[in-house]
Amino acid sequence: MITAQNLSLFFRDGQYRLPVLQGISIPIERGEWVALTGANGCGKSSLIRLFNGLNIPAGGSLTAAGLNLRSPENRTAVKQHIQLVFQNPEAQNVGSTPYEDVAFGLENRGLSPGEMEKRITRVLQQVGLAHKSETDISALSGGERQRLAVACCLALQAEMIIFDEATSMLDPAGRSDILDLARNLWRQGTTILWVTQRVEELAESPRVAVMGQGTMLYDGDPRTLFYSSELPGQLGWEPAPVISIGRLLQAKGWPLRLLPLTEQELEAIL
């Protein structure tokens, strides 16, 4: 889905060039679920904005959905394939009702009004907002607004959806709601890049990428990250309860492949 090699990006501040990303390489296969994390300001958001053509790489090579993103036309075209759900639920709705909001993206695609209506109805149903299609957006909860943002991605038939800390401003109910929705889409074949600050969400992902100060610090499976890497300690992560118990087991000589990452795994092995 994405081939990124040796990517770099700078912010210009007068005559200075401040490095934002340096030497980032990350391949993402079609149908994968990758969790991406890193402290605030480490360049995560800049990186994912490269993937759907919002940022322009200064160096390195980047192909997304088979399109070389060095060319401007491809940076427009890639938005058909890769869509973003942003962090702030209040700042990504363009219409004043869910119906209008989904329609906005479709209007740019030259669809017939009939086809548009069919698609809008279908995706609103898919995210459970069909009964609110004409409600004023300001009356939706944060979780509902994020579901609407997902509906917009689905209407554009995106093959990959990037969630940029999309649950960080929601309460626990809204958070698990969006996470469940993303997991359902993943099971149906959508590629997901899940950006998060929550350690337990990393542990539950098949693959974890960790960034720090514009570089990739780790990219691999979570078991190795949590049980045989110094990184979590260096980054000041408080270990999740399951991992703490896993470390006790590790101290008793349990092999790495048996150490638990989720509560279900813990229950299964004990």
Binding site: R49, T76, K79, Q80, Q83, F86, A91, V94, G105, N108
Partner: peptide
């Protein structure tokens, strides 16, 4: 943020 969202939805 809104401008980014608008651009991200393929507005041209």
């Amino acid at each position: 943020e809104l401008a980014t969202a608008v651009e991200s939805r393929g507005y041209d």
